[in-house]
Structure formats: C-alpha cells, structure tokens
Design a protein around this nucleic acid. Structure first.
Lengths: 142, 142
DNA sequence: TTAATCTTTAGAGTTAACTCTAAGTCAAGC
DNA sequence: GCTTGACTTAGAGTTAACTCTAAAGATTAA
C-alpha cells in the first residue's frame, strides 16, 4: 500500500506544496514514483517524514536535515556521523529547554504583575507589592 | 547614565543593526535621542529589550511584540490585553515544551539505535535488540 | 586638531522556508 | 467517454527577520 502526496501531506500535517519543495531540496530521495510519474509514499517514507518533522521541529535547518538524509543514503560508513548528529541535536534541545525555562519565569512574573495591575486598574504594582519588585530585579539582573 | 546603541546591543546579545531594525519596525518607541541625534538607551530601555528578547525567544513574531509595546504606550486601559497576551504566550510555551518532549523521545531512540549500529558497524539493530523495534513502533505510531 | 571609531539615515540585499501559478497529465466516479 | 479533482513541473512570488552599504555627522583619545 502507498499514499499519494496529498495523503502523505495530511498524515504528517504538511501541505503537498511543502512536500514537493522538500523533494526539490533533496530531502526525499527515498520517495519512488509510479510508472506515470506520481509520487508514491510508502509506510517507511511516512516515518522518514516524521523524523524530518522531529528535526525541523527542534530547530534543525533543512540543509542539515538534508545532510543527515544524504548520510543515510550513503550507507553504513556514515553511522558515526549520524549518531553524532543526534547527540548534538539532543544537546541543542536541552539547551533550548533551559532558555525557555528562563523565559517562562519572566512571563510568569509579567502575569503576576498584570494580574495585580488589572485588579486595581493601574500600574502602581510595586507600591502595593514590594516583593514583586525584588523578583523583577532578580529576573532582569543579568 | 545611558548607553549607546552599540553598548546596548552588546548587553542583550544583538547587533546595532538589529536594534536599528527593531526601532524602524516600531518596537523601540521608548528610546530617546540626544540633542545630536544619537540613540541613548536607559536602564529601563535595556529591560524593555530583555522582554522583547524573551517574547522573541519563545517564538512570538515581531509584529505581535510591537502590538504589546503599542499597548504599553497607550496606558492603563490596555492592561487586560497585556495580561491576556502573557497568559496566551505562557500557554504557547507550554504546548511547545510538550512537543519538544515528544521530539526528544524520538531523538533519544535514534541515539540508542545508532549507538548499537556504531558498535556492530551495521544497521541490523532490531535483530539484535527486538525491544528497540517495539519502542520505535510506539514512538512512530501516530 | 586630527585620526579613528562610532553613529546616523535610507534603502538595497540576503536567507530560510515556504507558497503559489500556469499549463499540462492522470485517476476515479458516473 | 467525460468530468472533476488531484497530480506533475518549472519557476515566480512572499514573508520574516535580519544584514549590509554608503555617505555623512558625532565622539573620543592622543
């Protein structure tokens, strides 16, 4: 069983346009075509798309995703590079997560700040709640 | 005390070019200029930049950041909108974090997969480790 | 006071990742 | 067989967010 480009697109939450664009960029060398020239996505192609989505979704540029796909096509000799690539990506994701935690603290501070402001209808928040001022200093010091 | 555009840029990890671009886009209406036309960033302007960085770093487009800045300039009447904006942003960050957790599981799987492959020099990983195949099915089923 | 460095503007150029169009081909239902 | 909708390609256009250039003015250190 195989899927048309439109079906495959729906399965991974992309458009057929985007899949054609990826193909043109060399990200989908594994996708075969029918005798009449239509792309036919196999189950394993769908898995490829999910890995591409995973890497793209964690911020890896398409060029580097293509690099990975190229390594996969080259065969067993590139296993170390591929392993290294996923280790690096894991590192990046975890760094990014740490950054987001910091951002989230600032956002939570702003929510507290505006909740108080909304309640009283003005921005004299720190006069009413000096502890929030301390928290602000801590969050914005660096 | 105030900072030149270059100093301000260094303090928040951006370039002077980028700060001028932000200014042109209307993101920095609070920045004053000296009598000779140079931008002078105050301490509180630096805090503005950090909030902009926080919002940009959690994926909010510059247009929506500008919307927030505009609300701030409009005065107390827009406090509810601003509160709502941060609540929405918090929601988005937490959704994004959940997505990244899922991506991270796939990445961890790939690391295990390629570690085994690297050790044996081939990709017959699932023959050696059938449990990994089960994990793959679980991770890629949806 | 002069050289080096920084800042100013307007505006052009770049990059990544789509997004769409046109003109034609293919497939499924009636 | 015919219509309708999905598919094909090449290539143009879009969007966001920078990134850079040029020419002129401002600031700083010697």
């Amino acid at each position: 069983m195989s899927y048309s480009i439109g079906e495959a697109a729906k399965m991974v939450g992309l458009t057929a346009h985007t899949l054609r664009f990826y193909d043109k960029e060399g990200l989908l060398p594994f996708v075969k075509k029918t005798s009449s020239g239509l792309r036919a996505f196999s189950e394993s192609d769908i898995e490829w798309l999910k890995i591409i989505e995973c890497l793209k979704g964690t911020g890896l540029p398409l060029k580097q995703i293509k690099q990975y796909i190229d390594w996969c096509m080259e065969g067993d000799a590139t296993i170390p590079q591929r392993l290294n690539m996923f280790i690096e990506q894991k590192k990046r994701v975890e760094e990014q997560k740490a950054k987001w935690e910091k951002h989230l603290e600032k956002i939570n501070f702003k929510i507290k700040y505006y909740e108080d402001a909304a309640q009283y209808g003005d921005l004299n928040v720190f006069e009413r709640n000096p502890k929030l001022l301390e928290e602000k200093k801590r969050l914005f010091k660096d």
